[in-house]
């Protein structure tokens, strides 16, 4: 008992810097977003009227939000499994004691050096239908690279955004999974090997379960990132192509240059809060779903 109280002053002193920063730059704006979500404000966001919590459900039910939610979920459904499988695949591939493996590891983690902005511009350049390199190379097999262009075809625009996003996230996933792999005690493999397990069995029975904390972490990160996709859309497609608005994600609906709620603080806040709640629900579902399955190494 005494010990617990004795630790209070130092704990407080050590936590105050982080807590103050988080309070001012994360908690305060979050609370304000909830409050502003119940308001109707002028374009400067400074003169507001109360319209009540009803606004959240109105925004949720609006066809624009429903559409953007669909796009965001589709994007997550494309990027999360693909990012995860590729990340694990690359990490397992490179988790070998081979001469020169360092080169391959650097190659596989290289996309971590590109920001979302840089990665999107890279793909923008590559996929440009008239002069892009990929369009030139592969248009014989995939005609839509030229006509009308991957990013301008309503059917392929979202997958193209997903491609850029997966590629950009690959380096980070690779590094985290590689770290996870290196944390697996080698004797587990030895005993599985002695038990006569083939390489696939060793992968499914040793590697995957032991990797589950890293996989959980990556799943949560990739899902959050997918739901918050903005810069890729802004730089690659501008939310289009129209009229399908195939790549208007929730963040782009809120902040995009052709957003219809661009200068409407109340609706923007309500939509942003809903996005937060959706991310939260996903994270909780993922944590709970994994809880019983995750193998924490002891």
């Amino acid at each position: 008992m005494k010990r617990r109280l004795r630790d209070v002053p130092p704990a407080l002193a050590m936590l105050v810097p982080s807590m103050a920063l988080l309070a001012v730059w994360t908690v305060y704006p979050l609370v304000m977003a909830f409050i502003n979500g119940t308001k109707s404000c002028d374009s400067t966001g400074r003169r507001c009227n109360d319209v009540g919590w009803q606004q959240f459900s109105n925004v949720w039910q609006s066809r624009e939000f429903q559409h953007a939610l669909g796009v965001s979920l589709k994007l997550a459904a494309m990027t999360v499994p693909a990012g995860l499988i590729l990340g694990v695949g690359l990490a397992v591939l490179a988790d070998k004691h081979l001469r020169g493996i360092g080169f391959f590891r650097t190659a596989f983690s290289s996309t971590v050096a590109t920001s979302v902005a840089v990665a999107s511009l890279v793909w923008f350049v590559l996929l440009q239908p008239e002069i892009g390199v990929l369009s030139d190379l592969f248009h014989e097999w995939i005609p839509s690279l030229k006509q009308p262009g991957l990013l301008r075809d309503p059917g392929t625009a979202l997958p193209a955004v997903a491609l850029s996003s997966v590629w950009a996230g690959l380096g980070f996933t690779f590094i985290v999974i590689t770290a996870g792999l290196q944390g697996i005690p080698r004797d587990l493999y030895e005993s599985a090997y002695v038990d006569g397990a083939g390489s696939w069995r060793r992968f499914t029975n040793v590697t995957l379960p032991m990797l589950s904390p890293s996989i959980l972490f990556i799943t949560v990160v990739l899902t959050t990132r997918a739901l918050q996709t903005y810069a890729e859309v802004s730089l690659l497609t501008g939310g289009g192509p129209n009229p399908e608005k195939s790549t208007t994600t929730i963040p782009y609906l809120i902040y995009g240059r052709n957003s219809v709620i661009q200068n409407n603080l109340g609706l923007k806040s309500a939509a942003a809060v809903l996005l937060f709640v959706i991310s939260l629900v996903f994270a909780i579902v993922q944590f709970r779903g994994f809880e019983k399955r995750v193998q924490y190494a002891r």
Binding site: L22, V27, P29, T224, Y230, L280
Partner: peptide, 20 residues
């Protein structure tokens, strides 16, 4: 509390933070 702040998207905070 600390962990929960990690899940707050920048989209939610950016408008108010700019004003701050």
């Amino acid at each position: 509390f600390f962990v929960a702040t990690m899940l707050v998207p920048a989209e939610v905070t950016v408008v108010i933070n700019r004003r701050t």
